[in-house]
Design a protein around this nucleic acid. Structure first.
Lengths: 177, 177
DNA sequence: GACGTCTAGTTGACCCTTCAACTATGCACC
DNA sequence: GGTGCATAGTTGAAGGGTCAACTAGACGTC
């Protein structure tokens, strides 16, 4: 592993493929701006006392049939761990914005239901949040740029779905001190 | 920009501008994939016992002259709050990967210095991390897509710099329980 | 040279996320 | 119909991030 000695290819161990200058530039630009973006959106939302992940949960519910969704469906939609959704839902439940009930078809399942107060809340956030998304993302790009961004991220998503995470179970090889 | 003022130049209360279907699609694609991406990168790094933000800090230091940077420069480079950088640096210092010292030119300042062990550590992470970035982002896009992504995010960054965060101090207007 | 203000960085408390158990139900298979 | 395993969701502790308060040095001004 330590490519000291004769770091020759006994078999595997290809030469590390660094990023080209262009790749590096794009990657860094992504890294920087994505941080800034989530920072900005979070901050704008904060006025209303909700985090982005709370907003997303409520938002998904508000778009769902009858304002209800299974926990796991919610987790998939907003790309968060089950556990995190549980905690978030608990917080929102305490505020009276959602309620939990058993899933009719599956004894293990839990359905989250948006309450009237919850719907009212999301709707009151939505306008300003969309404004925020426009200000920080949509309106600063040309339609073509935005479309290209969406397309690229779509490809990232597709790749991720195909292979969510690659380190083999027995992996995590070299680990010093 | 104010959209050419095509429809409504009234000073007050414009109609809420929702996202168009295309805008919505792109925005959602971004939101989803950016979560997945940071998730995947974080997970791959986790093998080595560092988080992405720790890695970035070390990485910036390793690229800097003499492996040293001011705290504030570091914070700007990796787009994190001062406080967060302090905490992260403290953690890395405990592991012996960085050291803190006073800034020569400014009595208030602190410079973070990458130690030998620290440099060795980053270098050992780097190969696999780049691999990870390739697998989840760079290699799943065409060069043109990656360039477009970088360009779009560059524009997001520029806009953010111009106006980091917009809620006026007296803002956060309507706030119901 | 003392005052007010601004910038750099740290600290600690609180909150959110993560992670590793854990419960409970569904499902296959013999 | 019991055994084994997979899935759904929860829990609590541990760790990282945020926020507001704080220390301390710089800088301008009178």
């Amino acid at each position: 592993m330590r490519h000291g000695g004769s770091w020759n290819d006994e078999r595997v161990e290809e030469a590390p493929r660094w990023l080209t200058a262009e790749e590096q530039t794009s990657w860094r630009a992504y890294l920087r701006a994505s941080r800034e973006l989530s920072f900005a959106l979070e901050k704008d939302l904060q006025c209303h006392g909700v985090s982005l992940s709370e907003y997303e949960l409520l938002s998904m519910l508000s778009e769902a049939d009858d304002g209800r969704l299974r926990m796991s469906a919610l987790a998939d939609l907003i790309v968060q761990s089950r556990s995190r959704v549980t905690h978030t839902a608990t917080r929102l439940e305490r505020r009276g914005w959602v309620e939990r009930g058993p899933a009719p078809d599956d004894g293990r399942g839990v359905v989250v239901q948006l309450t009237d107060a919850g719907r009212q809340a999301v709707e009151s956030f939505a306008v300003e949040h969309v404004e925020s998304v426009r200000r920080h993302l949509v309106d600063v790009l040309t339609p073509a740029q935005l479309a290209a961004l969406g397309e690229a991220m779509g490809a990232v998503h597709t790749a991720y779905r195909a292979d969510p995470t690659t380190p083999e179970p027995s992996e995590c090889p070299t680990m010093e001190l």
